[in-house]
């Protein structure tokens, strides 16, 4: 089934067409969701939500971009909105925990490079993190990223550059690792 027929099928509510669209794109959507969420449950929820929205909004798909691009923009929006909600929820929880905690700081082992890198990526603002993950981890082009995030190509490049700069700063103590 070519893309036009597939879209027509989904519009007509044909389960086979919906399944085919899902099968074609689910892996990439899930990968991105998992990379951003770092949690199976959340990645699953974001992926499901992205497809449910796509099926509901298929009538709004004008065909100006490829279906994959349109679907990716829905997925990115679902992921970023979902992460915002999770962050708000976790902040409230942390606030409550902090209020209840009486003990001193637990001793923590010095993090190794991997841990430090993970922490540094986690600490990036979500938009920067999305651009970094899409480009440097998942291999999307700036064109694809800018379309998915609804931004200028230059903005995508600038955000990636800032994200890298922040990471470099955070990993300064490990400079020997890449300089050698």
């Amino acid at each position: 089934m070519d893309e036009q027929a597939l879209i027509a099928g989904v519009r007509a509510g044909e389960p086979q067409a919906e399944r085919q669209l899902y099968d074609q794109h689910v892996d990439r959507v899930y990968r991105l969701a998992y990379r951003m969420a770092g949690d199976e449950e959340l990645a699953r929820d974001f992926t499901q939500d992205a497809f449910i929205r796509a099926f509901e909004k298929i009538d709004q798909f004008r065909g100006e971009a490829a279906l994959a691009t349109w679907l990716r923009s829905i997925a990115v929006s679902v992921i970023l909105n979902g992460l915002r909600k999770v962050k708000r929820f976790r902040q409230r929880e942390v606030g409550l925990d902090a209020a209840g905690a009486q003990g001193g700081n637990p001793r923590r082992a010095e993090p190794d490079l991997k841990e430090k890198l993970r922490g540094a990526i986690d600490a990036l603002p979500d938009n920067y993190r999305m651009v970094f993950v899409m480009h440097d981890v998942e291999g999307y082009t700036h064109q694809e990223i800018s379309e998915a995030l609804g931004m200028q190509l230059g903005t995508s490049k600038a955000q990636l550059s800032r994200a890298r700069a922040k990471l470099r700063e955070s990993l300064a103590e490990f400079a020997g690792e890449w300089a050698s």
Partner: peptide, 20 residues
């Protein structure tokens, strides 16, 4: 190094489809 960042497992395709 970032390839290890939240490395995704195999997607639970069937479960997600059922939920959708």
């Amino acid at each position: 190094a970032a390839q290890d960042y939240h490395r995704p497992p195999e997607p639970p395709r069937a479960d997600m489809w059922q939920a959708i």
